[in-house]
């Protein structure tokens, strides 16, 4: 799920809220972070990272994202 947010942020990270950028059939996977969907993707990632419960998952997703075929973030 966190990796998906990184990919969404690549398209639009600041000016739209995450809940405006996910499709209904995808909505279920974001159930655990319902209260954060009102924020833009980059802010969601930041807020998850400072939450102990999510910290490791965010770090793992960031490393996967950085090692993907996109050598620099754009």
């Amino acid at each position: 799920m966190v990796l998906k947010i990184f990919k969404i942020a690549e398209i639009e990270g600041e000016d739209f809220n995450l809940n405006d950028m996910i499709y209904e059939d995808n909505y279920e996977i974001f159930n655990e972070i319902k209260e954060l969907l009102k924020y833009p993707p980059r802010i969601v990632i930041s807020k998850l990272y400072i939450d102990d419960k999510w910290r490791r998952a965010v770090l793992k997703a960031a490393r996967t994202y950085l090692s993907s075929d996109r050598p620099i973030t754009r």
């Binding site: 600041e14 990632i45 994202y65």
Partner: peptide, 9 residues
């Protein structure tokens, strides 16, 4: 790594 992956360009 999270800071790098979350970079806004």
């Amino acid at each position: 790594d999270v800071v790098a992956a979350n970079l806004e360009e």
